[in-house]
Amino acid sequence: MATNLFEPTIPDLAIVGGGLAGGLVALAVTRARPALSLVLIEAGDSFGGNHRWSWFEGDLEAEAEALLDCFPLTVWRGGYTVRFPGFARRLPASYRSLASCDFDASLRRLLPQQAIRTGSRAIALDATGVTLESGERIAARAVIDCRDFKPSAYLTGGWQLFAGRHIRTDAPHGLAEPIIMDADLPQHDAYRFVYSLPLFADEVFVEDTYYADTPVLDLAVLGRRVAAYAEARGWTGETVGAEAGLLPVLTGGDFVRHRESQAMHGVALAGARGLFSHPLTSYTLPFAAETALAVARAMPIPGADLAALLDARAAKHWRATRFYRLLGKMLFQAAEAEARWRIFARFYRLPAPLIARFYAGRSTPADMARVLIGRPPVPISRGVAALLGKGAPLVQGSRT
């Protein structure tokens, strides 16, 4: 039978959502299976949005580290600092950071040009393709949904709110290493800390973060607090970039009912929408890299089989991260908001290797026991009530 040379090729994979999870899937599949065709569909004008992702070097296995090394990274090899009222500590772990503008530029360089579809909002996904807001239909042999987390009444927890500024300072800022957590600050009815990264001698990134009960992001208030923090340290100058966001901190819920509420038959779920995150820190990068590599190893694969593969991985991840959801319950339901910093201050007195495994989501049973033993930083009665309680549903947040 003759082949119609004008018949469009159906992509082997359509990836909806060009954020961290979707971009890494596209890159991993392109590197591992260059003969396959794919399309990366993003509603915005650029991949990755307006974010900065950071992680500890030990968070990634070698293969995942090699995948991230495709991007231009800022690396600090000396160590980092944390600060709390009456206590500060320097830890030796190397730290890495990736700006979304570099993520976008690298994907545009590394992916086939026909794979890039920005400014294309998807309104419907199914096992055979994607329908765009414009009415265009993109057929595909497999579809994976990598869009942002979708609030759910079947999940419980709190929220991580943040607002950051990239400042080009009038004079060298003098900060040599990252300050990952400075909580020696007014808490404002949440667990609040400021995160500072020295990007260049005269450029610093400063982000104000809150573990809050309610998902209200007041950009004006947070912006003023970031500016005040920077000015108090002499970091004045031109703001060359800004970001803000709202992330879920998972403490529990009904995993099966949540997945059923999100499911589209034959469509795979990944990224934060697929619950591939660290429940307590809300980190997604290590899990996004691992998922991307798993998809690349499995391709080519029918869409239904890809959906089943990622469903199984998500269920395994949910079981493996139960300990972190338990700690999140203690944070939000047992600790008074103004005293939540005490939980983290106690945690940061523990051995450095334990802290490293915690952030990587690879805590051992001995680590878990070590975190829990000793005098609890919350009243015992409130701790028991927290463990027995259901928690607040993760419903839609807002921004003002």
Rank of each mutant, 00 (worst) to 15 (best):
L394M: 03
V256Y: 11
W55G: 12
V384P: 14
A272M: 10
E63R: 14
I355K: 01
L250P: 07
D367R: 10
S100T: 03
A105Y: 04
G271C: 13
P172G: 13
E61H: 09
L36F: 08
D202V: 11
A21N: 10
R382D: 10
K150P: 04
A320Q: 08
L199M: 06
M181D: 00
G397F: 00
C70N: 04
A88E: 15
A43Q: 12
V194T: 15
A43P: 04
W76E: 00
P279H: 08
V39Y: 09
A337F: 00
D367A: 15
R362P: 07
S106A: 12
W235N: 12
H258I: 00
Q262Y: 00
A385Y: 00
H258D: 13
Q160S: 14
A335D: 01
L110I: 02
A35M: 07
Q160L: 12
A212V: 10
A105T: 02
D102S: 13
A289N: 13
L354T: 05
V82T: 11
A334Q: 09
A227K: 11
Y348F: 15
G389S: 14
D12C: 11
A171D: 09
A308M: 00
I355W: 07
R165C: 02
L20I: 09
T81K: 11
L132A: 07
R297G: 10
R370W: 05
G119Y: 11
G234Y: 11
R77V: 12
A171R: 12
A88C: 13
I343R: 04
G78H: 02
G237R: 10
T81N: 06
G271K: 12
A2N: 02
S120T: 08
I180D: 00
Y195D: 04
A140L: 09
L38N: 11
A263P: 08
R165H: 10
A35D: 15
S398V: 09
A352Y: 03
G129T: 06
L132W: 01
D218I: 09
A337W: 02
P379R: 03
F6E: 10
G19R: 06
A232G: 14
T209P: 06
D45N: 08
Y80I: 01
L275K: 02
A352C: 08
P34L: 04
E243N: 01
G374E: 05
A127H: 12
R77G: 07
F287Y: 14
W235S: 13
A337I: 02
A115S: 14
Y154M: 01
G157Q: 00
I41P: 13
P302H: 06
L372M: 13
P376W: 07
R77A: 14
A93K: 06
A26V: 09
P377I: 05
T400G: 15
A127F: 02
A2W: 03
K316R: 10
G44H: 05
L217I: 06
S277I: 15
I10Y: 05
H173N: 09
L20P: 01
L91V: 03
E238W: 07
P248C: 04
G234W: 04
A242T: 06
D311W: 02
V378C: 11
P186I: 07
P279E: 02
A122Y: 03
V256G: 03
D69Y: 00
P172C: 08
D305P: 05
R147E: 12
C146I: 02
Q113P: 01
D59L: 01
A212S: 15
A127P: 08
S54G: 14
V82R: 06
V256P: 01
V206H: 04
